[in-house]
Amino acid sequence: MIPLIAFEDVAKRFTLHLRGGLVLPVVDSVSLSVDPGECVVLGGPSGAGKSSLLRMASGNYRCDRGAIRVRDGDRVVDVATAPPREILDLRRRVIASVSQFLRVIPRVGARAVVEAAGREGGLAPQEAARRAAELLARLNLPERLWDLPPATFSGGEQQRVNIARGLVADKPLLLLDEPTASLDAQNRAVVVALIRERQAAGAGILGIFHDADVREAVATRIVDVTRFRAQAAA
């Protein structure tokens, strides 16, 4: 089976030119893959490079070495070397990212944010609208907020909009960075259910879940990121 995403000998470090060229190693020799139906949870202490791995997977961070192969139907795209427009295309159709924080677009209502993501992900406008409403309702976002811009929402409300945006289209690869961080138990349960549904539908998930309950509930496999710990540059 071709994995949905495969890291092959990936290395990443930051060079901080403003601090005299200080090199911060992040990860090294990362080899890791996610098959359809799998939920691979990244474990390890903070600072181990979990978020960096997710960011590299979506092309947000560059790689210094190796390949990150993402399956797109019949073909495979190496995110580490793909030109920008291919990465953007993957993000539209293949990769769903949900981070802790919603990057707010001024003046656009919550429902419209989610609908737009659905349309970008290939849904017909009506279907995108239907699913957006369904997801926001399942995530218990009060309906009176739907047409308001999320900028004024609480952290938890913003996060639920973010989750709905990430999950509205049927993308095969989900990158989840602490999606439940500021949610209460009830809403965490909703997110767990949503993740399981996508898993059952054949999506692959690569995620970071700080909350032990959620981790237990969704993980098919836990990868300890500390084993990718990079050696400090000589």
Binding site: G59, N60, Y61, P84, L88
Partner: peptide, 9 residues
């Protein structure tokens, strides 16, 4: 490069 890549990394 990609806007978010250049800005974030």
């Amino acid at each position: 490069g990609l806007t978010d890549q250049v800005l974030d990394d």
